[in-house]
């Protein structure tokens, strides 16, 4: 049965992008490093980063100290950009079948409303927000460990 789920590409791709944003510190991060921190295979990361590169979300840097960096500052990349590259259309429904009154009513009053709420989160959250949230969590964990 098909359920409402984000694909493997979407899940692993976002994790890799966030890891890159956290660990590149203005420079770049190697796929080997991302692979180790995120428990994702190097092969998989290579294919996903060539895709992200073609989509213009990351830039590849050649050389011994090379790797990848975000194509734009973290506060200019929204989750919406990343997720539409990785997942395509983020709507919770496909338009299908003959349109009955009930179906078009529910499209307008339920599914489009959900899509709007999801889009607000995606367009309103940048990579910088995500990084900040991770740092805040680490800080509160460090404090609770004292």
């Amino acid at each position: 049965m098909r359920k409402m789920k984000i694909s493997t590409k979407g899940r692993y791709g976002l994790r890799a992008m966030i890891d890159l944003a956290v660990n590149s510190n203005g420079g770049c991060a190697s796929l080997a490093g991302i692979s180790e921190r995120q428990d994702l295979s190097l092969n998989y990361l290579e294919s996903i980063f060539s895709y992200l590169k073609r989509a213009g979300l990351v830039i590849g840097i050649a050389g011994a100290q090379g790797g990848y960096m975000l194509a734009k500052p973290a506060d200019e990349i929204t989750l919406y950009e990343i997720m539409t590259v990785l997942e395509g259309d983020m709507s919770v429904y496909d338009k299908f079948g003959p349109t009955t009154k009930i179906r078009s009513f529910l499209n307008k009053n339920v599914w489009d409303v959900i899509d709007k709420n999801v889009n607000e989160v995606l367009t309103g959250t940048t990579m910088a927000d995500v990084i900040k949230n991770i740092e805040n969590n680490r800080l509160s964990e460090d404090c609770s460990a004292l």
């Binding site: 984000i6 709420n117 999801v118 989160v121 959250t125 995500v130």
Partner: peptide, 25 residues
């Protein structure tokens, strides 16, 4: 099943999306 599960960096995003869906549903 990931080894990175305990300090997952993306779950926060999925929770936010999930909340946005549940808010209406």
């Amino acid at each position: 099943k990931s080894k990175a599960r305990s300090n997952c960096i993306s779950r926060y995003v999925w929770i936010r999306i999930s909340d946005a869906i549940a808010k209406t549903a």
